[in-house]
């Protein structure tokens, strides 16, 4: 419990910064909505000028851009990009910051098992992400109800917003896995930006092709907002793939961390 509380406190600042950044993005985008929905016909015409693959890559769905959920799901792509970076940063830092700050010796010579250390640390990161999402969802919900031009389904709004947390958790465990497998990560941000953007572009490419199998390659494409709006549900195969990635990465990370030699500075 002491490790959990300490870690949670250590993430306080970064959690606040990320939460407010996400809120700022959603506020900014949503404030465009009233004017876009007013001129949606012209806007659609303008967008039609782009070739279809490009529109797909950028997540533009012409038929529902004029509805608040359609617009929300379009901008949501960029929110998940941000959120993924937050998740990945946390995941990579969890263990690598102990090596970088040379505090691993301190922690690992205390009467706690490595499993307990990792669990406490992961719980702290998960709680940070959940708090971020809770605050985000309240803020985004308030913003949506301010700018809406017609009623929308609260359920769909929550379902779309929840995918942010899913994606963050996937990147959290991927980051953790990277930090356990590769001995020394000097700069967390470089690695996490690299990996996240890589998956983001893979996701963009996958979206243009129309080949459903390609979507498995990028966690960004596991939750198709158009599908969620239409069916009010997630797509089971991709949801399972996400859960599978989380489970496999966690198990591998735990095993690798148990066996890992902790070297001095």
């Amino acid at each position: 419990m002491n490790i959990f509380l300490y870690e949670l406190k250590a993430y306080r600042k970064s959690t606040l910064v990320w939460t407010f950044s996400l809120l700022a993005i959603v506020t900014m985008f949503m404030s465009f909505y009233p004017s876009i929905s007013k001129d949606i016909d012209q806007f659609t015409k303008l967008l039609e000028g782009f070739p279809e693959p490009v529109r797909k890559a950028f997540g533009l769905q012409l038929d529902n851009m004029g509805t608040i959920m359609g617009f929300y799901s379009y901008m949501f792509l960029y929110l998940t990009l941000c959120g993924a970076i937050q998740g990945m940063n946390l995941g990579i830092s969890v263990l690598s910051k102990e090596t970088r700050d040379k505090t691993a010796d301190f922690l690992l010579t205390k009467p706690v098992t490595r499993v307990n250390i990792l669990t406490a640390k992961l719980m702290a990161t998960a709680v940070s992400l959940i708090l971020t999402n809770a605050v985000y969802m309240i803020g985004a919900g308030m913003m949506a109800s301010q700018v809406k031009t017609e009623d929308y389904s609260m359920k769909i709004f929550v379902m779309i917003s929840l995918t942010l947390l899913f994606i963050q958790l996937i990147f959290l465990v991927l980051g953790l896995l990277l930090s356990v497998l590769f001995a020394r990560i000097k700069s967390v941000l470089t690695v996490s930006l690299g990996v996240v953007f890589c998956f983001f572009f893979i996701g963009m490419l996958a979206a243009t092709g129309g080949d459903e199998a390609k979507r498995f390659l990028s966690p960004f494409k596991y939750f198709d907002t158009a599908y969620i709006i239409e069916h009010s549900s997630y797509e089971a195969p991709y949801l399972l793939a996400g859960i599978g990635i989380i489970a496999a990465s966690l198990i591998t990370s735990y095993i690798a961390y148990m066996k890992k030699d902790i070297h001095a500075g």
């Binding site: 505090t103 010579t109 706690v112």
Partner: peptide, 29 residues
């Protein structure tokens, strides 16, 4: 972890969580 209860270890290079007060670190320890 059982043995560690009764071991005190001082590494050759000490680096502790920097943005803590000495007292907070000792309390954490």
């Amino acid at each position: 972890h059982e043995i560690a209860k009764d071991i005190g270890y001082l590494p050759s290079e000490v680096f502790y969580y920097d943005n803590m007060k000495v007292m907070d670190l000792l309390k954490y320890s």
